[in-house]
Amino acid sequence: MKPTESETGTEEEFSFGTTQSDVEVTTADRLRNFYREFIYKPGLVAWEDNRTRIGATILAVYVFIGTVGTWFYRAPTTNQSERSIQPFQTMEAPLGTTSSGEDVLAMAIHATPEMLIMILSGGIFATGLAVLIGTVAGYKGGTTDRILTTFSDVAMSIPGLPLIMVLAVVVSPERAVVIGILITINYWAGLARSIRSQVLTIREHSYVEASRTMGVSTPRILIKDVIPNIMPYVLVNFANAARYVVFASVGLYYLGILPTSVANWGIQLDNAYSQAGALSGGGTMYQLVVPMIAIMFLALGLILLAQGMDRVFNPRVRTRLAGESRGEAEDDEDNAAPTEVMT
């Protein structure tokens, strides 16, 4: 396996989920097991990569701002300070104010929690549905597969952004959770397709066949044998889906298609941009730059996280030139136990 394997996997290397189920397992044990296999081990490997570290740190900062920051920093209201203060002039509004006297920094900070909720709901919806449809289609095969595949193909072929826009106009959602789901309304389809094709090879593995001949039920095989294998891939795509939610939601807010009752960086962009045109630029540049930086760093954090995890998990990128790659590839095939492919 990968060089990191020997450091992380210390004991119980070959304890299959199925053999354990004969012995009594307490909930605490199962939780601990889950934590070790799904969070600790992959986390440790992913942490080796600098990009993951930076990405995770950036995200942590956003979560901090979105939870604690909104608590400490005042909420934006009109005329809370003098109008049109340039940035770095007063401590009262460190990044300046808009022409209606709103603190630019406060606007940016108070848009964060809603954005994080959108990301979470969109990401969970997209990856959850993709895993469900992808694994069932790939594993069951036959008619189930054909129906589910056609379904996701159709969903995939409808262009995402225009569909979201049309739906947003019709539904005009207010809650961040709903907006997140709306944005990923057909994002899951592409992911479901690629998960399906991965499951097609996984289901031919001997341990899956063993479970099947032992009469283990399909949902259990999917959860115990199949999903752990695709988990890293799913995590990478969770980050990608999250980035898509950021880009799309800010874009929709910018266009003014979503209700403007909540604070969002897109609304800030829109206001600043329309003023920039009126004042022929320059004077309001800082109002544009602040939300832009907020969007960019969030996206950067998510990309870095996805790339960092991808590098560790993706055998394609892992494969090296010439000699090195051979050794790795062989190792991979030799001990492809379900618990290990994970790390």
Binding site: R51, Y273, G277, M296, I303, L304
Partner: peptide
Amino acid sequence: ILMSSIPFYVLGILFVVVFSYR
């Protein structure tokens, strides 16, 4: 990675403000 973290419309706005207005 840095370039992909910019949404295309953000860069578009920046372009208009800098290259067209300024």
